[in-house]
Write a protein that binds this DNA or RNA. Structure first.
Lengths: 248, 248
DNA sequence: CTCAAGGTTTGATCGAAGTCAAATTTTCGC
DNA sequence: GCGAAAATTTGACTTCGATCAAACCTTGAG
């Protein structure tokens, strides 16, 4: 691995507090690879050989069953995925594919477990990351079970609205994927987007324009206990900016 | 805390490999309490002061939003809950209430974090538990997004069918709760149960009788990547027995 | 630039599941 | 046991969201 890569990785919160020796040992067996779009990185059911860290690009986590398929999350830099499977040395529960050209650090699971045992600071970082992932999936499940699809869409748009007052932004993922993530069909997403025009948001192509923030809020009724803050790798297209509706 | 309690807790996989000194320190600030049924132990949005360990009884994890409420899991002995919130020192994302008379160990979050930092064996156990919880919620989300309600119900019944060939067992939770856990209304659950008679399962009161296992399997089409094995605290009424349909 | 492939939108229709209401059974305190 | 409260079931009806089909737009390879 190149020195520049090592420095970049070293700076990640997951590795920042590690002992030099342990970090070096961990990186000895690691790769930093570039992938083109639409490459399947891992397939559900496989053994968990490598922890993956996205440093550039975007990766879709998805799952299938009996011919159906659903997007579980979109992982963006800098986050890990399939950490839980590596820790437990268990089969992956989700597949992963690149959405755009991406760079991924691959760390052998055995090295990961060794470093975890030897380095308390690393152990702390790992468990923090894992807890964040867990909380993210819990939010996703709550979103699915408690909100109707229109409400989920409105909440999603709200989460991705810049906090600085900007009224426009781009959807960072295809509508097809967004529909799958939100648990609805592309057709239904299209109709739902249309219907939200009455509530203060218009979408043209990838461009989202919020004309009536309060209207959108009235539909989504966002709450910190579903919509964050406290994001992590597991949340789709989560950016560091979000609106905190202020507790429960 | 009584010595008998201490021994019992010490035997749990979460604490088994801990150093004696650390275990003693952890238990110094801990309580072991008995609760009657229907007691709210924690409410979502609160600060995470205590890790909870269920030693007897059953605890419902649930979440609410805008007057709606959904059951996220039923935690049975011996499992922890709200571990992720304690580790991150973040607000709970779910509420918890006892379903039946229960005994719970309460461990202060600060002590937990201290023990985690000092004791590598404990750290390993914590991260294993957390990874298990994460995987459990991922399974729940996959179940919700990939299967129709009838299929979810069939899969649930299959997961709870004894592996030893027994054709009868009791539902361990109220149908109202089961419906909520499966993401459907009680009315719809009732109808779905009725309709599954044609597929080889009859339910009278709490009693479930499997008359045609293959028929039920044909509806549920179980897979290890949704239905386990590899259970944990987070899964509703998960028992150590389950049918492994044999990977993907 | 052109065309093909795939993504998106729209419309019509269908079906699964929710809602409302009421009957029935079960549970539980007294 | 009795009776009230709660859970479950059943039926009628509604609605949300899926499916099917076709048109339209975007994108990218050649």
């Amino acid at each position: 691995m190149r020195d520049a890569d090592l420095e970049e990785i070293r700076a990640l919160s997951l590795f920042r507090d590690m002992d030099d020796v342990h970090f070096a040992a961990l990186m000895r067996g690691a790769y930093h690879q570039s992938f083109p779009p639409q490459v399947t990185l891992i397939e559900e059911g496989q053994a968990a050989d490598f922890l993956h860290v996205v440093t550039e690009g975007a990766v879709e986590m998805y799952a299938g069953w009996e011919g159906r398929e659903t997007t579980m999350a979109v992982v963006r830099p800098v986050s890990t995925f399939i950490l839980a499977a590596c820790i437990n040395d268990a089969p992956y529960l989700m597949s992963a594919r690149t959405l755009v050209p991406s760079r991924i650090v691959l760390i052998p699971g055995s090295d990961l477990r060794t470093a975890f045992a030897k380095d308390p600071a690393f152990a702390k970082a790992i468990v923090g990351e894992l807890a964040g992932c867990y909380r993210s999936v819990v939010r996703h499940a709550k979103d699915l079970k408690l909100r109707a699809s229109r409400e989920r869409l409105a909440a999603y748009l709200l989460r991705h609205t810049p906090a600085d007052g900007t009224k426009e932004f781009d959807l960072q993922i295809e509508k097809r994927l967004l529909a799958s993530y939100l648990g609805m069909t592309p057709e239904n997403l299209s109709r739902a987007l249309r219907s939200l025009r009455d509530d203060g948001v218009t979408v043209e192509g990838q461009r989202v324009t919020i004309s009536d923030l309060d209207g959108l809020i009235a539909v989504a009724r966002p709450t910190a206990l579903i919509d964050g803050p406290d994001c992590c790798s597991g949340e789709a297209a989560e950016s560091p900016s979000r609106r905190d509706p202020g507790g429960l």
